[in-house]
């Protein structure tokens, strides 16, 4: 019987290959040896298992540090208020501010992949809560329901729309800028309407027009410029970073 010589060489490099090698480790050429086809079961010099890095997730640590740092002024103010001013409520302003900061910082550490709407709802809620505390614990009249609430909601809605339109649906830098400009023209109009209805009940647009019109014109300009390829090219050339 013919003796089968059990070795393969790389046709490109000229090195002998161990039976564990399916292709030459030096050049990647596949081993084609009709006398000795590649044996998947040949002993491998190293196992497949990788020694991976241990996960280094310190978000819990950051969250606890933030919590403690925010609790410190709250606790001091609460106890001072109780001890010296007989619980008149001024400390609630500090506690409210710290609570709002906590809501702004800590959930963002853990819910990075959640939709933007989720974050907007949380942050709007925190801001509204803090404004409500200010109204409740200071003697500044009732402005929360008719002034603060609508303005904050308007801001939140515009921000969400802007985000969804400019970063999800609309493509192109100039068009995105146009969307943001258009929403900026809506904002002062909305704010003036809310203020007017709070102060006098009748809506008469005055100063908002002077902000809204330039913004609208700028938005239109962006749309027009965005269509001109040559202009865009020139801008790219001069403004590239």
């Amino acid at each position: 019987m013919e003796q089968v010589i059990k070795m393969s060489y790389c046709v490109n490099c000229g090195v002998e290959l161990k039976p564990s090698e399916q292709m030459c480790p030096l050049c990647g050429t596949e081993v084609v040896n009709p006398r000795q086809p590649y044996d998947r079961k040949a002993p491998k010099p190293f196992p497949e298992r990788m020694d991976l890095f241990m996960p280094q997730d310190n978000r819990g640590f950051i969250a606890s540090i933030v919590t403690l740092v925010l609790m410190l002024p709250s606790a001091i103010c609460l106890s001072c208020d109780a001890a010296y001013t007989g619980g008149s409520g001024w400390s609630m302003l500090v506690v409210g501010a710290m609570a709002m900061l906590w809501v702004l910082i800590v959930p963002a550490l853990f819910f990075r992949r959640h939709p933007i709407v989720f974050g907007v709802v949380l942050d709007t809620g925190a801001l509204l809560g803090y404004l409500w505390i200010i109204e409740r614990y200071t003697e500044t009249g009732s402005w929360f329901l008719r002034l603060a609430l609508p303005i904050v909601l308007l801001l939140a809605v515009l921000f969400t729309l802007d985000y969804l339109l400019a970063f999800r649906l609309v493509r192109g830098r100039f068009r995105q800028a146009a969307v943001v400009m258009a929403s900026l023209s809506v904002l002062p109009v909305g704010i003036e309407m809310i203020i007017d209805s709070y102060l006098s009940g009748a809506i008469r647009l005055q100063w908002a027009v002077f902000v809204a019109i330039p913004c609208l014109i700028l938005a239109l300009l962006m749309l027009v410029l965005g269509r001109r390829e040559r202009f865009k090219e020139q801008m790219k050339k001069r403004l590239h970073m």
């Binding site: 000229g14 090195v15 002998e16 290959l17 161990k18 090698e21 399916q22 491998k44 010099p45 990788m50």
Partner: peptide
């Protein structure tokens, strides 16, 4: 190899 030394190679073939 060019200089006449017989070389046999093996590798850990990183996945």
């Amino acid at each position: 190899v060019k200089r006449g030394i017989h070389v046999t190679v093996e590798s850990n073939n990183p996945p």
